[in-house]
């Protein structure tokens, strides 16, 4: 690791202001992604702002009947919360399908949302990577791309977002609450939070420099059957090849978000009219613009079959 200075944040607004003051500063929450990347010198912050002391570890009902999840609620606690299990089951399921018990005990809501890609070339500092080193090129385009994106990608980057939790949050229409270095706050709809790579794959979210996440808010429960299905190379403790988060109503209508296929959780609201007609019609619409590589074309078929299984489970 490169040397860095360290401070403990005293309030969310102060954390944001401190991050803007210090060039090269980063927040650290669970540390399970940031420290991993710092050891490999993929991330090289000069200053760490430890936010663990901020009292953002609570889940509370919102006046509208939804749920406000503090940025520091650990993945284990979020998945185990009775309200989440009862009303937002797809979120519990997505969290429990990710990482390991040890990691979920540390990983936070905000840190999970901001975890970086698992593209093998992003991790290999000897290889060009536009995300790690803007302008250096993308090694994955002509390389090993089995794990990578099939839709929404660009000539600059074909990486996927690895978060399971984010896929469920996308299906649930969550809102990310933040405070900026000047003290102003805003809510960013999850649909606008993660960006497509375009020409700037190193810019991954709508967050501005220093902007700090305080909470993630869920709207009132949508009802229906909640299913998260993750297809991976091992039965446990592996990232998704493809995952499906779905909330399906009795009448067969529903919402569907996909993981493992794009630079952000992939949901196409306009395609959801096809959900009652079944997996084939729905997936054809959701992945209408897919451009897989020869190594990951299987993901398109896999996504359709995974959705088929999800819809069967939701009916059953």
């Amino acid at each position: 690791m490169k040397p860095f200075t360290y401070e403990r944040a005293t309030s969310p607004a102060e954390a944001a202001a401190a991050a803007a003051r210090r060039p090269g500063a980063k927040f650290i929450a669970g540390g399970t992604n940031l420290l991993d990347l710092m050891k490999l010198q993929i991330e090289t912050p000069a200053h760490l702002i430890d936010v663990n002391g901020l009292a953002l570890d609570k889940l509370e009902p919102t006046p509208e009947g939804g749920l406000r999840i503090g940025a520091l609620v650990r993945n284990t606690d979020l998945a185990a919360d009775q309200r989440v299990r009862r009303d937002y089951g797809v979120l519990s399921r997505a969290l429990l399908a990710g990482a390991s018990g040890q990691l979920r005990n540390k990983a936070t809501t905000a840190g999970n949302l901001l975890q970086r890609t698992r593209c093998p070339y992003f991790y290999d500092t000897n290889q060009p990577c536009n995300k790690r080193q803007p302008g250096s090129g993308c090694s994955a385009l002509g390389g090993f791309s089995r794990q990578l994106a099939v839709v929404g990608h660009s000539e600059a980057c074909i990486a996927t977002n690895p978060s399971d939790m984010a896929v469920a949050l996308r299906a649930l229409d969550a809102v990310v609450e933040t405070v900026k270095p000047d003290g102003t706050t805003r809510g960013i709809p999850i649909a606008e939070f993660h960006r497509l790579p375009g020409d700037t794959p190193h810019i991954e979210t709508a967050l501005e420099p220093g902007e700090f996440i305080t909470a993630v808010t869920l709207p009132p429960p949508a009802g229906g059957r909640h299913v998260y299905r993750k297809v991976r190379d091992r039965a446990s403790y592996a990232f998704a090849l493809v995952s499906v988060a779905a909330v399906v109503q009795r009448d067969g209508t529903g919402r569907v978000a996909l993981g493992g296929v794009a630079h952000r959780p992939w949901r196409v609201e306009a395609a959801e009219a096809e959900v009652p007609r079944g997996a084939r019609a729905a997936m054809a619409a959701i992945l209408a613009n897919a451009r897989p590589t020869h190594e990951n074309a299987f993901k398109v078929t896999l996504a359709e079959r995974a959705l088929h299984a999800v819809l069967a489970e939701a009916r059953g």
Partner: peptide, 21 residues
């Protein structure tokens, strides 16, 4: 998981956390 320890009664990976935290 070889580095698993308990902090405040919960298991974590001691390799992915800083002592100062």
């Amino acid at each position: 998981g070889a580095c698993t320890v308990m902090v405040g009664g919960r298991r974590i990976n001691a390799c992915l956390t800083l002592a100062v935290m």
